[in-house]
Simulated assay, not measured.
Amino acid sequence: MGSIPARKYSFESVKGFFLQDDPATNQTDFHYEAVNFGLIDRAYDTDTPGDADLTQWQRFAAYVRHLIETSPADTTYKLIYNGRHGEGYHNVGEAKYGTQAWNDYWSKLDGDGELYWFDAHLTAKGTQQALHNHAFLKRQFAQEKMPAPQKYYSSPLYRCLQTANLTYLHLDVPVDAPFTPTIKEMMREVMGEHTCDKRSSKAVIHKAVPSWNIETGFTEEDELWRPDHRETFAEHDARTHALLEDIFEHDSHAVLSFTSHSGAIASLLRVMGHREFGLPTGALIPLLVRATRTQ
Results as ranks from 00 to 15, higher is better:
4 I>Q: 06
9 Y>S: 04
10 S>W: 00
11 F>S: 10
19 L>E: 15
22 D>M: 03
30 F>K: 04
33 E>F: 13
33 E>D: 14
36 N>Y: 02
39 L>R: 05
43 A>T: 13
47 D>V: 02
49 P>K: 03
57 W>I: 10
59 R>G: 04
62 A>R: 15
63 Y>W: 15
67 L>V: 01
76 T>L: 09
79 L>G: 03
80 I>G: 02
89 Y>D: 00
95 A>C: 06
95 A>P: 00
95 A>W: 13
96 K>Q: 13
97 Y>Q: 01
98 G>N: 12
99 T>D: 06
99 T>I: 14
101 A>W: 09
108 K>S: 11
111 G>L: 12
117 W>E: 01
118 F>A: 10
126 G>P: 02
127 T>C: 13
128 Q>S: 14
132 H>C: 06
133 N>M: 14
135 A>T: 14
139 R>G: 00
141 F>D: 05
141 F>C: 07
143 Q>D: 15
143 Q>H: 08
144 E>T: 03
145 K>G: 03
147 P>L: 00
149 P>I: 07
154 S>I: 05
157 L>P: 01
161 L>T: 06
163 T>V: 07
163 T>E: 12
167 T>I: 14
173 V>C: 05
180 T>E: 08
182 T>D: 10
188 R>S: 14
189 E>R: 06
195 T>K: 15
195 T>R: 15
196 C>F: 07
201 S>P: 09
203 A>G: 05
210 P>V: 13
210 P>H: 09
210 P>F: 13
213 N>V: 09
222 D>H: 05
223 E>Q: 12
229 H>A: 13
229 H>S: 11
234 A>E: 15
237 D>M: 01
238 A>S: 13
240 T>A: 09
241 H>K: 03
243 L>N: 09
243 L>T: 06
244 L>E: 05
245 E>V: 03
246 D>F: 08
247 I>C: 08
250 H>A: 14
251 D>N: 09
253 H>A: 15
255 V>F: 14
257 S>G: 04
260 S>D: 04
263 G>Y: 02
264 A>G: 12
267 S>F: 07
268 L>D: 00
275 R>G: 14
275 R>E: 01
279 L>V: 04
283 A>V: 00
285 I>C: 13
285 I>G: 10
287 L>N: 10
291 A>W: 01
